[in-house]
Design a protein around this nucleic acid. Structure first.
Lengths: 202, 202
DNA sequence: CACTCCGTATGACAAATGTCAGACGGTCAC
DNA sequence: GTGACCGTCTGACATTTGTCATACGGAGTG
């Protein structure tokens, strides 16, 4: 019995190499490849693969977003996410999106092939190190609005601009930022943005 | 005549896959693999490869640093840098370090094999798109001190801390930041940091 | 030698930011 | 239905930042 696999990664080099390696396994067959989020979705619809191997960072829509859509449209398709720089919050989002596997790109192809079989069998697998990081980082202490405003502050925009983009009064924005900064124990909002990013909270 | 290749990338998945694909080429042989900068250097010393294919982002020392050392220790070894997120400044640094090739990971393995031969023959190759970006970004308008201070401001530290870390008076730090911000046309120093990073100036 | 940068510094002022207190309506749980 | 939050707002205040003028010594250029 063969497992039909969709491969999505924006780096051609990696995608091609991976396709070649995985094809060496007798029970795996790559039925489609994609370089962007939307492309991955289209390919999945067209080929209805058993397992989708998605890169976390892709142009258009990231792996988790694709996984969410996939879950709705092709419930039979299991999703395995592969990532280069795994930040804690991503894992949580991914699991919430129904992803069955989450591993860093530091695993070997051999191991990846095994994992494809694992998730195809309906089991889950999360890289232990990433899991430990996620647990250590814990839950975000930020309310949704605080997180939202903090995100808008990410590119260094002044308060007035954030307020406009969030349709809030400047005073309110400052309150949220102040509260976010103190919750994160940061020096100022810019350091807060950095911290929240590191922990995957934004 | 075969080309002896060293492969350095921290992502096992990619490195392994790449090694497999490149080995398919009759005239290429992977003599060593490394997952970190220092490891790459050690491997190069041990195996004296003809061409070193280095990832730009590796733990320990990045591709450009490794290339610099390589240039000094093994002048016969040509360096080809492969990167996922190529920012303009990196290319410039890389060329200054004597790197012969610079391409994004979006190229195909086929193409990479060709490029390995190209640099081995002593020719240069730079991805046209990355080159265009680098030219568009131009030279950094920042003085070295401005860049230095801007870098210290990168993690959102307050002026007082930057001043201490740079052994400058707080007023001077503010002057540099102010000048950097206006040179970059940014809203404030945090946006300036972002801009400078994008253009590879810090 | 004069001129122009750069690095460094100070002082002063305006603007942005961070912090706090207080207010009001909504939602959810007990 | 009373608390406990959350989202939203305002106003006031202290601190931090951004900006500008000005100063001086050193390096490099004409």
């Amino acid at each position: 019995m063969t497992v039909r696999v969709l491969l999505a990664d924006d780096e051609h080099l990696i995608r091609g190499a991976l396709a070649a390696l995985l094809s060496l396994e007798d029970d795996l067959v790559i039925v489609a490849e994609a370089a962007t989020g939307p492309e991955a979705l289209a390919m999945a619809r067209a080929h209805a693969p058993d397992v989708a191997v998605l890169d976390l960072q892709m142009p258009g829509a990231d792996g988790v977003k694709v996984a969410t859509s996939l879950r709705a449209e092709l419930p039979a398709c299991q999703v395995l996410i592969v990532t280069s720089h795994g930040r804690p919050g991503h894992l949580k989002r991914a699991l919430a999106a129904g992803v069955r596997g989450f591993v860093p790109k530091t695993v070997s192809a051999q191991r990846l092939a095994e994992l494809i079989r694992t998730v195809h069998a309906g089991n889950r697998y999360v890289d232990p190190e990433l899991a430990a990081d996620a647990i250590a980082a814990g839950d975000s202490p930020l309310t949704s609005r605080e997180a939202e405003v903090l995100e808008l502050a990410a590119d260094g925009a002044p308060v007035a601009e954030i307020a406009e983009r969030a349709a809030l009064s400047p005073g309110t924005v400052r309150n949220y930022l102040s509260s976010a900064v103190s919750k994160l124990g940061a020096e100022n909002r810019h350091a807060a943005v950095r911290l929240a990013r590191e922990r995957g909270w934004v």
